[in-house]
Simulated scan of single mutants.
Amino acid sequence: MSASRAVRTLTAYNAWANDGLFTLLETTDEAQRIPEAPILLAILNHAHAVCQIFRAHMTGERHDYHSANPEQPLPLDELSASARAIDEWYCDYAHSLSEAELTQRIDFRFTSGEKASMTREEMILHVVNHGTYHRGNIGVILQKNGILPDKDVITDFLSARAVTS
């Protein structure tokens, strides 16, 4: 599998898994009433901020984040819409990149001010893995409260995609 195909697959998987989680949270009243609901929202806002920050790094735009943990977190409905929009952006962006653009190294600074350098491919892989990690955090919290989390398994995504293709 080429790097560009892998990145396209991973961004589509990430969007699918995020959509499943947001749909669950939006449609399960119990999830919004658990004691850890503010923590879930903080985790989601953090993951979303990281997506925004790395999009800015890849496009050369400025971002206004001074931390990956926003001081003013978005409420679930706004966050859901914004997360779905940035997931769509990542999918479109992944499809627009050539192999050469994927391996282009970009210098940037983390929100801490520390200098860094990564390729676009590495940044996208970071965003996808970061999202998977935090969906796992949320899944544990949901299970602890008797709520079955949405399936977040790439094999399910690939199987579902193969059936609809």
Rank of each mutant, 00 (worst) to 15 (best):
M123K: 05
G139M: 04
V140R: 06
H63Q: 15
Y90R: 13
D19L: 06
H95Y: 11
V127G: 04
P38L: 05
A81N: 11
E71A: 15
T155N: 08
K115S: 15
V128R: 01
R161P: 01
E78M: 11
R84G: 12
I34Q: 02
H66A: 14
I147S: 09
L125V: 08
Q52L: 13
I138R: 00
M123L: 13
D19A: 10
A116Y: 06
T155M: 08
R62Y: 00
E71P: 07
P70R: 07
L41E: 02
A49G: 06
A56F: 04
Y65S: 14
V153Y: 07
F157C: 01
N69W: 12
L74H: 05
H95A: 15
L40R: 05
A49R: 03
Q143W: 09
S96Q: 13
I124S: 02
A68K: 12
R8E: 12
L148C: 14
R109L: 11
E30V: 08
I53F: 10
H66R: 14
Y13Q: 01
R33N: 09
A15Y: 03
M123Q: 11
T111W: 08
K115G: 12
N18I: 07
D87F: 05
E101Y: 01
A162G: 02
S159Y: 06
G113W: 03
G131A: 10
T132H: 08
T9V: 11
K115T: 11
I86C: 07
A15G: 00
C91R: 14
F54M: 13
M58P: 00
A100M: 11
R62S: 13
R120L: 02
M123S: 12
D156Q: 11
S82I: 02
H134S: 11
D92T: 09
S67G: 08
H48I: 09
R62G: 07
T155Y: 04
S165T: 09
T155V: 11
A15P: 02
Q52M: 15
P38D: 07
I141Q: 05
A94K: 01
R135L: 04
N129T: 13
R135P: 04
Y93V: 01
